[in-house]
Amino acid sequence: MSARDDIIAAVREGLKRGQGGALPRRAPAEIRAEAAALLAGLDEIRPSLVTPDPVEAFIQKCANPALGVTLDRVAGWAALPQAVTGYLDRHELPHRLAVSGDPRLSALGPGIETHAPCAPDEAAAISIASWGVAETGSVVIHSAPDQPILNAMLPRHWLVVVEAAKILPFLDDYATFASLRPRNAVLITGSSGTTDIEGYFVRGAHGPGFVHVLLIG
């Protein structure tokens, strides 16, 4: 027998023994229903938002110093270039960014030099997140032709745009979109960090040491 058949047989054998010698065959629909019932009443098993408005809650979460995130509210897409140069200036960075193929970023304007792909030692890159999650202050990106995952991982400064309308209240609200099944769905919550040396928190372990959220609208 193949390893696969052996393992499944062994699991069934174990289930039989563990259930007093019987292996009740249940229809997949029944199993699915039981699994769904385990998620009933989600509010009983998840924290409530720091404030009822998801956008406000998202902003407050991002203000938590433990996350190592900064956030700017940007009036609209038109105001994005100004917000970006503002950030780069504050950090004394050249007006140079690695971008994805997302057309919304091509309008960053004449003052900012954009290029692709992101270099391994890139100073700054910008991505557009598909969603934000108010519960945790996370942003979510799905890999795609115009969404390179490495742009979020390689630079020292990662700027990420997210629309206020795309802020979801809870992690569970994002889970619905998992059915899109991209190669990578990454929930990013704050800057990269490690506590591996004597428990000291150090920012920028492998991923970006600086994460700046540009919240549009």
Partner: peptide, 17 residues
């Protein structure tokens, strides 16, 4: 900081993976 779901290899046209 990073919670990632990996679903199969790079899709046609994907920027990386």
């Amino acid at each position: 900081q990073y919670t990632t779901f990996h679903c199969g290899p790079k899709r046609v046209g994907d920027a990386d993976g």
